[in-house]
Design a protein around this nucleic acid. Structure first.
Length: 425
DNA sequence: TCTGGGGTCCTAGGACCC
DNA sequence: TCTGGGGTCCTAGGACCC
């Protein structure tokens, strides 16, 4: 058996830990740039506020009911996430925990006797809540997909389930699947949901009873086959070692307000390259292919949101993680992409084809230079880490940066900055 | 008169996730 | 005035190899 442990309204819970006066009060957390609502607690949901809706649309309700609003504070959430995961690893053994995202993980429970699963899950929940202050829900079942089903039902009816649901046998699985719409299955997005519904498959139970060949044809080949097997209780995804090394690194941000000047877009792209290169060095890799993209909103009616993406890529002669090298090759792409007169909403970079630093493929046609600037980069990373982000940066990334995103309502980085430590009198 | 079959690698694009 | 920022996996098709 497996479990999924999922933090309830994670970002809101993190804010609440340091502001106990918000207990039982509605809370929302906004995306970067304060654009969208990306987390809301049950109290906010009860007021009719929608997840991932634009902030401005919900503003009337938010102001009327005095909902607490925060800009996202990823330093805080990242640190709280580690505390939750660390607690679970201590309780179940590191090798049994697969961290799946910032707020959820799968746990292998094969060593727990069937009769004790529920008790054990409740123990995990209670301990995490006591040690970190973050509330969690737990779903236990034979496969990951079924765990997600159980977890969702446990959340929907917290009073009855106490936030824990175990699917012990076929009967319980059947009952749970009948209560789950296809749109709520993990692995079914809008496209697949439409296809399923047009074939008159509306519940998870109906999907489970579909034959695998139909799934192969209509739900993305092997992906669909696995999905149906998992619903049948036949595990296709085991608890995995976490991916220590990413295969792709992306950095992208909305601008604080639309930008029309080439100069500022180049500054932003240089900044994003610096950030992505930091992430790259953290996993001791170098990048071979750099993709740069910009998003415009050119429409007769400027209020209509109709983003258009244009991108271009460059393949470096030799993979590198040296920021200024990457900037040199990638920044000219911005000149190519730029159109005078467009309004730019956003830009970003994607690093793909990542090579480990210790086995970089050299180039027959360029001199065999090593990553000689590594000590410079290391120094730069150390300064920026110990002082503040961007204490030292490249001039091409701009000095004034008036394109930067808004974060007007961010709370303190209570657990990761000494100067912002929470004081108790 | 007539031109194979089997394989690998890479990339773009589509789907999904939180 | 105003709509996030990351990721993953899979597949099809083209280029190339012997």
């Amino acid at each position: 058996m497996k479990a999924i442990v999922d933090c309830n309204s994670f970002y809101c819970s993190c804010e609440k830990v340091f502001k106990p006066e918000l207990n039982n009060k509605p809370i929302v957390v906004l995306s970067n740039n304060d654009g969208c609502i990306i987390s809301l607690n049950d109290d906010a949901k009860a007021l009719g506020v929608k997840m991932t809706g634009p902030y401005y649309q919900a503003k009337p309700v938010i102001e009327k009911y005095n909902v607490a609003v925060f800009s996202s504070n990823y330093n805080l959430y990242g640190d709280m996430s580690q505390r939750v995961m660390q607690t679970l690893k201590m309780l179940t053994g590191e090798e049994n925990v697969e961290v799946y995202s910032v707020d959820e993980c799968f746990i292998n429970l094969d060593h727990i006797p069937a009769a004790e699963l529920c008790k054990f899950a409740l123990h995990l929940k209670k301990t995490v809540e006591e040690w970190t202050g973050v509330a969690v829900s737990i779903g236990v079942a034979p496969t990951k997909v079924l765990c997600k089903v159980a977890n969702r039902l446990s959340k929907k009816n917290k009073k009855e389930t106490k936030g824990v649901m175990v699917l012990h046998n076929e009967q319980e699985i059947k009952h749970a699947l009948q209560k789950t719409a296809v749109t709520d299955i993990w692995g079914v997005g809008t496209r697949y949901a439409l296809k399923l519904q047009s074939n008159n498959i509306n519940t998870a139970w109906e999907l489970r009873n579909t034959n695998e060949e139909w799934g192969r044809k209509n739900l993305g080949g092997i992906v669909g086959v696995r999905l149906i097997k998992e619903l049948c209780g036949d595990p296709c995804g085991e608890i995995k070692e976490p991916l220590k090394v990413k295969k792709m690194i992306t950095t992208t941000r909305m601008f604080g307000k639309p930008v029309t000047e080439l100069k500022y877009i180049k500054e932003a792209v240089a900044t994003y390259i610096s950030r992505a290169a930091e992430k790259l060095r953290r996993q001791s890799c170098s990048v071979k292919t750099v993709h740069v993209f910009v998003v415009t909103n050119d429409y007769a009616d400027v209020y209509k949101y109709n983003p258009q993406t244009r991108g271009s890529r460059v393949i470096l002669p030799v993979a590198t993680s040296v920021t200024n090298n990457i900037i040199r090759y990638a920044l000219p792409l911005v000149d190519k992409l730029f159109c005078e007169g467009s309004r730019y909403l956003k830009a970003g970079v994607i690093f793909s084809v990542l090579e480990p630093d210790d086995c970089i493929q050299s180039n027959l046609f360029s001199a065999a230079v090593k990553n000689t600037r590594h000590s410079l980069m290391e120094t730069l990373d150390n300064i920026n880490f110990s002082m503040r982000d961007d204490a030292v940066k490249f001039v091409s990334s701009g000095l004034t940066r008036n394109w930067k995103m808004r974060q007007e309502l961010r709370s303190g980085r209570f657990t990761s900055r000494w100067e912002e430590l929470k004081e108790v009198r």
